[in-house]
Design a protein around this nucleic acid. Structure first.
Lengths: 149, 149
DNA sequence: ATAGAAGTTCAAGTGAGCTTGAGATCAAGG
DNA sequence: CCTTGATCTCAAGCTCACTTGAACTTCTAT
């Protein structure tokens, strides 16, 4: 088992396209050594980092947020299980929030949409809170009557 | 209470920006009558339609999917509560799927990331299924070893 | 009558997250 | 040595869901 992986091997083993790996490297989410030729050589540890990235994306974090989290890992040693779980600990709350929202949406779907209270002015089922970053563009979310501008 | 709303009123009451309303009209998600001047006049029923759209977006559907759903509403009469709930019924399943995935992710986060099984090749915690449309671009999701190309 | 708010169209821009293409170089097997 | 496949860089393109700007027109209130 080689200690260093080429970009192709890394792509195969992680399921992340080579182009995405270059993109992530450019964004500072992962790092690669270089062979004399200029070709990337990824340490095996990058695989776990990639797993974490894909995981975090499924949870709904942006690459920027993920990068900020990854930056908290110790850079001079290979991160331990404890390092990783410390990172991921705070996300459980985020998942719970999102689950709670989905459950509210489900209630709204089966009751509220049919009943007529979805006249928008009073219904609080759909709220922001999550994805607060999108308050600028995108449909304004009705947050209890308060809205931008 | 006026029977028809201007685009500005519609935007205020729905929380959806006027530019988004024009965009949705262009995409066929909503329709507007026109005043002699060319100004849009939205029937009040558009508010419920907008509520549904925002709802559906929070659940994770694309505008295209939402449009397909809305197309199933009767076009010649104002949809009833039953019409709406028939539409939304099938989404409950989708919400449940997404909740289940989030719960799996949460388990993975607290156990799997720390333990070492996240070496990608064996871990099935992150799967596709949801968002199948994204299988083309974007990071390839590991679906039990099977991947595109 | 006139200012200013609100509306119109159309084209182009935005941001996230990559992918694709061009043109060149590198690595491995026969 | 030569071919084939992997990689490299850099610039440009793509999808989604809108927003923004320019250049006008219309409505409303004084």
């Amino acid at each position: 088992m080689e200690a260093l992986l080429t970009i192709g091997e890394t792509a195969r083993r992680s399921g992340v396209a080579a182009s995405a790996l270059r993109f992530y490297e450019e964004r500072g989410l992962i790092t690669a050594q270089r062979a004399g030729s200029g070709h990337r050589r990824f340490p095996r540890a990058v695989l776990r980092r990639l797993a974490f990235i894909v995981f975090a994306q499924r949870i709904g974090l942006s690459l920027e947020e993920i990068g900020a989290e990854l930056a908290k890992l110790p850079s001079e040693r290979v991160p331990t299980g404890r390092d990783w779980s410390r990172l991921s600990g705070k996300w459980a709350g985020r998942i719970d929030q999102r689950i709670a929202e989905l459950q509210r949406l489900k209630v709204g779907l089966t009751s509220c949409i049919g009943c007529g209270c979805l006249s928008l002015e009073h219904c609080q089922l759909v709220n922001a809170g999550d994805r607060a970053g999108r308050i600028g563009p995108g449909p304004l979310l009705w947050v209890g009557g308060r809205r931008k501008r």
